[in-house]
Amino acid sequence: MIGTIIRKELKMFFTSPLAWILLTLLQLILTWIFLGRLDGFLEIQSQLLQIANPPGVTEIITLPVFAMAAIVLLMVTPLLSMRLIAEERRYHTLTLLMSAPISITDIVIGKFLGLMVFFSMAIILIVGLSISLLLGGDLDFGLIISNTIGLLLTAASFSAFGLYISSLTAQPAIAAIATLGGLLGLWLVDLVTGENNQWLQAISLLRHFERFNQGLIDTFSIAYFVLFIATFLILTIRHLDGERLRG
């Protein structure tokens, strides 16, 4: 049953030009950054050879691309997640799902996974870009793997948050703006606070993504992401179920 929802969501994404435009834009921006970095690397390559322990091609080119990818995903998520539930409510199609023999949990998870399939496609393209560097030299695969996991978890967190916001309203545009605001807030919370505020730092998505970006697969960060995703998925399910009770 979850499969039915995933298929429908993907079909809806790809019948609208928005998804294609976003996917192309994402790829253009990241390829541009990638090439810029590559250019810079080639220029300083001769100097790097003189250093005893030089940073590898992965550190210089791939890390910034992944860091940028996370920010681009943050911008893109609200545009994709806004419709997920808000639009169903607006056009009264939520009734179709609610009248069918499918649980609210399946609906929510299906929509979340649909968005994740889309993001995975974008992330595969980014990873492919990095792996193309193999043509010219050695790669630090550990770093690429930790970055990929980090980016997937980040995208999943964004999706879960966007899905929840979308479930609160019948206006996709409002959902988009609120999601963007919320995500920026969560992303930047660590810039606003000083080094000494442990608590706020712990909830900054950026801080956790940076760990993965630097190649650290930290269990605390994984736990944070998983908890974040689960919380918002459960909130979404509870909100939709509550609507049945409140009307």
Binding site: S16, H92, T93, L96
Partner: peptide, 23 residues
Amino acid sequence: PEIPPLYQDMTVDEYLVFAARLH
């Protein structure tokens, strides 16, 4: 329902197939 629960940008076939799968 009072307001038919229709996806405006699906074709009739796509929509009915989706409804069939849901059921």
